[in-house]
Design a protein around this nucleic acid. Structure first.
Ligand code: NAD
Ligand code: NAD
Lengths: 213, 213
DNA sequence: ACTTTTTTGTGGTATAATTAACAATGTATA
DNA sequence: TATACATTGTTAATTATACCACAAAAAAGT
């Protein structure tokens, strides 16, 4: 039933379906359809069904999907039944904004540690209850707190060094905000978030739209 | 030579090549090859050449690419020969971090205005020289300052309303940080940046790796 | 009981993106 | 000047992703 490899775009959409279902639940709606979700997200209904079909049969023909049940299944598939402890590496502007983002806690991610090398920042609180630690203590703190995910917000020229240290500390995944492509062992997951690249896609589109008209 | 539609992944990579060339230039290297760039970025050399071939012939067979020349061409293609004025809509934590990010100015994006509805924030400076304005003044300020790009960092439930207002004000592109999919006219470009979705891709990978071993 | 309507799950097809292969072109050098 | 080597630009092959179409299943209507 479940193939070895799930397409990356499918995984991203599953997370989007999960968000969509959460919203439906909040609205008090307890049944939906591939069409309803697809329309809300601007995609095709067949895409929704195909994506879900990689993991099983969650709907009833002629009826649709039970919001609660499908939501639970996606939660399970995405690995969100447990809570994840995360650490902020690099407690600058971006690290601060992310640590204080309520969407993290709401989605089962808990910022339990933060690190920096700037002496002035060490000891300060990044969020209530979490003080910024020395970079040198990273390894032991990651282990003691079972931190599996690191949010990497250090300057670009430090990113590979820090990533190496994170891997040595036993981290499982890195959300990389730096504009460098990291080399890590293949059992470590990395997701890049690079909005300057997105900005430049935008200027490309705007500029080429102007060219064509 | 240039087809009507350039693949989206190609555009993203062009921006990455441009960054890569900038770094080479800083290192004092003035000639490169598709292989060198591909290796640095973890992709295939044929991909680099294919991507460039949509726009022309920029290299010399047997030799490679002149870093300066290719860099300039990509700058042109990506619409980066001009400087872009951008506005921050929603001057909260994320808006603040972005406005203060040095990478923007370095890449030709200038934050010239910021907006909020919170009375306490209005009049404060988000970056030196840019004070936070009332939301109601958005339209006129966008016009007076020829702002073509909006960085949208308002709460999710406001995003569509604000996007509509932005479109009415004549904005050309929106970098959307909110977790909502925006509806805009087709001549307006939107790029979504959604790192909670990236985080969940990460947990999917980590969780399914654990399942398989 | 039969028909109509709805909507799923899926196999096959179409489209898109990546990768490989190679002739064409340029450089280096013996 | 011939020969070996490097690297592009491009066509062809392969792989990945999205979309379509329809039988199967469930519910509602007659
Ligand atoms: N701020 C943004 O909006 C933004 C946007 C896109 C990308 N980024 C990237 O995110 C990263 C951080 O950006 P920022 O604006 O928060 O910068 P920042 O300078 O405000 O923060 C970086 C922090 O990392 C700390 N640091 C440096 N070396 C470290 C190390 N070895 N270990 C731990 N901490 C270390 C610094 O002391 C500083 O506090 C950069 O790579 C930047 O390119 C930022
Ligand atoms: N902070 C993060 O790391 C992060 C990460 C991912 C997504 N986001 C998204 O980015 C957005 C902003 O996040 P944040 O953490 O900065 O929140 P925030 O609450 O710190 O900032 C939001 C700001 O928008 C202002 N605002 C509200 N309505 C407005 C309106 N109509 N016009 C102008 N301003 C308005 C608020 O007064 C506030 O200052 C949210 O949609 C959030 O989901 C944030």
């Amino acid at each position: 039933m479940r193939p070895l490899k799930i397409p990356k775009p499918t995984v991203k959409r599953l997370a989007i379906y999960y968000r969509c279902l959460t919203k439906l639940k909040e609205t008090g709606i307890d049944r939906t359809s591939s069409k309803e979700m697809a329309d809300a997200l601007g995609i095709k209904a067949s895409q929704v069904r195909k994506d879900l079909s990689y993991f099983g049969e969650f709907g009833k023909r002629g009826v649709g999907y039970d919001v609660d049940k499908l939501s639970y299944k996606l939660k399970e598939i995405l690995g969100l039944k447990k809570n994840w402890n995360v650490a902020i590496i690099g407690s600058g502007n971006l690290g601060y904004a992310i640590a204080n983002y309520s969407g993290l806690e709401k989605n089962g991610f808990k910022v339990v540690a933060a690190f920096d090398i700037d002496e002035k920042k060490i000891g300060r609180m990044i969020i209530p209850g979490v003080t910024i630690n020395k970079f040198s203590e990273m390894s032991s703190i990651i282990n003691e707190n079972s931190i599996e995910i690191a949010i990497l917000t250090v300057p670009a020229h430090e990113s590979q060094n820090v990533a190496d240290a994170l891997v040595k500390s036993g981290i499982k995944g890195i959300l990389n905000f730096t504009p460098s492509s990291l080399s890590v062992p293949e059992n470590i997951s990395v997701e890049d978030v690079d909005f300057v690249i997105s900005l430049k896609s935008l200027t490309f589109e705007i500029a080429s739209f102007n060219d064509n008209e």
